[in-house]
Structure formats: C-alpha cells, structure tokens
Write a protein that binds this DNA or RNA. Sequence first.
DNA 1: TGCGCCATCCAAAGCGGTTTGAGTATGATT
DNA 2: AATCATACTCAAACCGCTTTGGATGGCGCA
Lengths: 343, 343
Amino acid sequence: MNLKELATKLGLSPTTVSRALNGYPEVNEATRERVMAAAKRHNYRPNTRAIRLATGRALAIGHVIPLATRHEIMNPIFADFIAGAGETYSRNGYDMLLSVVPDESEEQAYRDLKSRGSADGVILHAPRMNDPRIPLMHEIGIPFVVHGRATDTTEPYSWVDVNNRRAFQRATEFLLDLGHMRIGLVNGLEFMDFAIRRRTGYADALASRGMALDPALMSSDEMTEISGFRAASAMLDLRDPPTAFLVASMISGMGVRRAIEGRGLAMGRDVSVIIHDDDLSYLKNGDAVPIFTATRSSVREAGRIAAEMLLAIITQQGEEPQNRLLEAELIIGQSTGPAPRRA
Amino acid sequence: MNLKELATKLGLSPTTVSRALNGYPEVNEATRERVMAAAKRHNYRPNTRAIRLATGRALAIGHVIPLATRHEIMNPIFADFIAGAGETYSRNGYDMLLSVVPDESEEQAYRDLKSRGSADGVILHAPRMNDPRIPLMHEIGIPFVVHGRATDTTEPYSWVDVNNRRAFQRATEFLLDLGHMRIGLVNGLEFMDFAIRRRTGYADALASRGMALDPALMSSDEMTEISGFRAASAMLDLRDPPTAFLVASMISGMGVRRAIEGRGLAMGRDVSVIIHDDDLSYLKNGDAVPIFTATRSSVREAGRIAAEMLLAIITQQGEEPQNRLLEAELIIGQSTGPAPRRA
DNA sequence: TGCGCCATCCAAAGCGGTTTGAGTATGATT
DNA sequence: AATCATACTCAAACCGCTTTGGATGGCGCA
C-alpha cells in the first residue's frame, strides 16, 4: 500500500494525501480525518526510502565502531550508551546506524556516511587526547556530538561528558579524609581522555594536601578484571603498600577485590576501594547497599542526553556548539572505611 | 557530486556511467576504466538513498532491541555479537540498523521495519521458549535468522546456536569424573532458551550416572555478579553443600567465586567451578591459563556466522531454512580440581 | 552491395514520496 | 455584478539512481 494507491482509493491526489498526513494547514480538516482514517485502516506506512530521497534527509544517526583489534575499551559501556541513545532516536523517528569497521577504515567510514548520505549526524565515542576525528568531522561538515571530551583540541565542538576530574578528586579527598595516606590508582589507558582527567583529579587532590605522587602507586591499563588484579597485586606487594585504591571501572574493581581478598585482607576494613561505576544495567554495583563505594554516573543517561543534543543540532542547525557536563555522585558502599592503624 | 554531474563531465549518459561502475558487461572496457578513474578522482559515492529507492532494497539489516526494563539479560553479550555481525555487514555493503524500543512496541517495530522498507532482514536475539517472534516473522514475511533456538517452536526457521545442552552435559560429566557428587547449577533465567538447554544437559549427565536432581542445588536468575553470589552463598550454606558449581556466565561466575572465597574456601581446591564463557572481548577469562575452567564459544563468531547466513538467505532467497550448531570447547583452567575428600 | 548481428551507448520510465506553482470554487468586498 | 482574497485541491517536477527498450554504427557474410 503506497501513497498513490491510497490516494486513488480516497479519490484524492497524492499531494493532498501527503499533506493531510504530514499535518500541513492547507487541507480541509474533514478531508484530513478521512485520510488519516483510511491510512490507519489500510495500515499505510510511508516508505522510508522514498521519504529520505525526497527530503534529502537520512533520518538516521551514525555510530562508527572501529573493530579495535587491539583494545576493546569502549565495549562494555557501549551497549548501555547505545540503549540510551537509541531510545531517543526511536522516539523521534530516527534510525540508528552502526558501522563496524576495521580501525584503518574509520576515517573513510565517516566520509562515506556523509557522501553517501546515510546519516544526518554522528556521535563520536571514546575520544582520545587531541582526537583527529574532531577536525575530521568539521572538514566533512557533518553535525556531531562527542561522548566525552578531547583534551588539547582547540576548535569548539559539542559534547556530553562526566566530570571525571572532579569525581576522582572528590573520591581521593574522601579517602584522604578517612586517613588513607597511600592510595593506589588503577586507571584506564591514559591516552583515553577520561583516564587523563581522572588522573588529574587524583593528582590535584593529593597536591592540595601537599602529598607527593608515587609512580609506584599509579597504573594504567585496559579496564579488565585481569589487569585490575595485576595492578592491585603489584601495589599490594610493595614494601609500603597502599591502604586504598581508586579504580577506573567496575570490572577492574573486581580484579582489585580478588587481589585484596587473595591476600587474606578484607576489602573495606584492611583496604578501601572506590571504583567508577557507569551504572551499567547488567553490572549492578549491588542493590540496597552498594558493594563498592563509587563515583557513579549513568552512561545510559549520557546516551540519551547526547542523542537529544545531536537531534537538536540537526534540526535547528546553525547554532553554536552545545555541551553538558554531568557530575558523578559519590556513593558510599561497603568497600571503604577508615585507614587501618599502622602495623 | 552525483551520477548526472559525473556523466556530464565525462560526456556520457548516466546510464552508461551507472553500468560502468556496477560492472555490467555492455560497456566498453576502455570506457569503464575512464569512468572508474573519474569516479575515483572526483570522489564520487553513489547516494545510498537513491539506490535504495531505485532497487527496492534497503541494504540494511535490522536488530530490534527491546528496552527490557525488567531484565537486561542480553546486554553483555550484545556488544560482541553486534561487533561480529556488523563487521560482516560492512564487508558486504550492508548497514546495521538498531531499533531500541519499549518492550510493548517490539512487534510494531518489526512490522515497521518491513512495511517502511528499512531493512531487508532481521536477526532475532535471545529467543525464549516458544518465542512469538518466530511466527511473527513468518507472518510479516521478512527474512530472518535467530541467534539461538526456540524450544517448542514447530515451524522451521534459520538459526545459529551453541550446543548448550552438550556443553553443560560435558561440563557436568567432567565434574563427575573428578569425583564431585554434589554439583550446584547457577543458571540463567529459565524462560530463556539457552538456559533451558543447559539445565537439560546438566540433568542428562546426572541421570546417565543414575544420580537424582536436587532442587536445592539448582538456581535460576539473571546473570549478574550479585545473583551469582547469592545463589552460590545459599547453596554453600546447605547442610550438604556442593563441591562444584556449573555457572551460566563469566559475570555470575565472579559472584560465585566471591561467595566461595568469602567463606575461606579456595576455588579449584575446595570448590570447583565451571562457567560458560562467551569469549567476550572485554571480559577475558584470564590469558595464558584461564581463571575459570569453561565451556567456551565465541559470541562474536556467532554474530559473524548469523550475519553471513542472513545475507545468503536474502540474496538467494527461496532456499529452505539453514542452521548451524556450534560446539563449545571445554577449556581447563584453574577453577577445577578433584573433589575434596569427605570431611 | 545488402543484411543481420554484435558491441556500445543512450533516452526515458520508473522507485514512492515531497514540494512548487497553479487552478477552482466559495464567500466576502466594493 | 465585478473583484478579490481564501480555502482546497491537484498536476507535474524533482530527489538520484537503476533498468528497460531502443538507437547507432561497424563488421562479417552471402
């Protein structure tokens, strides 16, 4: 059932039917209702392909996912971000287009999205320091929003980010207030922007108390259980081990906990742990009482916000870049407590 | 730069240019090369919207993701499946369309995909027993492949699945051979097809050794860390606790480990654990030596296979349903050992 | 020389909508 | 009664590509 057929059935022209359905004013209300009813009755859905061609809009938002043979950093949070963004797209009649491409064709993937006209805008994931994709988007001339920020990028752009620096600064201060003097940082890979900011927050907090950074207490790696375990193990084996850890993710936090408990220590009593919790739907940090004390910020919510921002930019374009800095909550769980007395 | 412009520049008709680029035989080789060169030089990409309208094909595969307010079961494996499938789509010039919709509009989402012509086929995720979506797809008349199977569905359909029953049967037998007499099952939600099959495999193995099922040793819940912890804790607190666990996922396995180690027991010595490992890229089960003994089957690979199968069905349609049963490997790690001697 | 065939190329008709530019009643204005 | 907005409605162009159904010209063959 297409427009023409429907029009014939109604004894109207396609023009009028189209206008009636799309809410144009120059059509009699009685006619409009007749058309609407017929459309519903015959279960008419306009062909998206035709709409797209006629209007020149793609009605779709692109997400390019590099296959990331080396690091799969973004993966765990990706599903939740997508859920939030996708929800918003659906509500607004947009499709979500995912391009999974080999690392080396990432740039071409973005160019194609634009030149083949298959997306009206894109969302950039997992920005790195001075990320080349930002100038690329400007060059290509496609609306975009970054989930995160890119330190050192000078040109303006729209973004949605968590205040990673402040989150880790507050967490560090919280541990310091509990009397912890040696705090280990189990960070993500520090070419990722969020990891840089978290380390800065950690460093700032220590500096403001006049404490020096100890490189032995700072690690940076992928956020897997194993690497959390390794990093924490190494630090706990130091002559002067940390009494607390600041950990970049729930999953590495599990590795840290394993390292702690494997040494017969109790998390929350002998060693305190604070993680960053992306509030992933399938990786809940406990229920009533959180397992881990955490800086929490919902990545799904970030997805919603980023999608809304992008759709706004696309529809009323010509605006200046927007941005939104989300504050993480500091949630107290069972994994923190006062620093143990010196042995 | 569109076809017409390119044709004008070349002094050819759009017809010829189109044919040259699409490899039709009725064009002079010299001309073809000239066209190809010009296309490359001017960086010409055909407009996908126009191709779709003209050919009547969507060149896209749909994945409908219900928002799943209640259970987020599919989420953790989703990212990896998508990566595998998406990779295949890209290689074949197809787009991946994700529709994130509220649970109650799931059916409508599939219907729209078809009637609005935005997808040539769909992949069904996380099938349940007697899943209503399978008859729905037949009714709608859209090519589809199921990732998993739906017990009790009689009509034929195409699927890619892991041999869950055999995997858990083998794992159970392996534990029995190690002398374990009481084996706890920490299963996923048993309205999910894979969970049903796993329980069957577990039950079959016990039955073939003439052992009775003990309901107290069988749990079924979402596959989260917490519920793994809860299920294992409850069983370990029994008067006659299990000496081994069969666990549905890596994540619940972490909860099981926490329950074991929290009781001062050692995993692999006092209590053995076998998990099912989806081989997720961000949740590696150790590296050289796996942490957990596991039945392993790559969900990313399943994504690739399902995508290939679907594309094949779409291009040479009229075929009878295809299917592919993947066998899980049984990987020996550090979490299993002989049953401890009776206290 | 004349004819048919083949290799090339092209004009034009879609695909299914949207949108521009008119056309036609209708009722109000003068 | 003539004029003119106003309210509706429609024919046709268009979006950018594919594809059908010829055209054209060169060549082999009788």
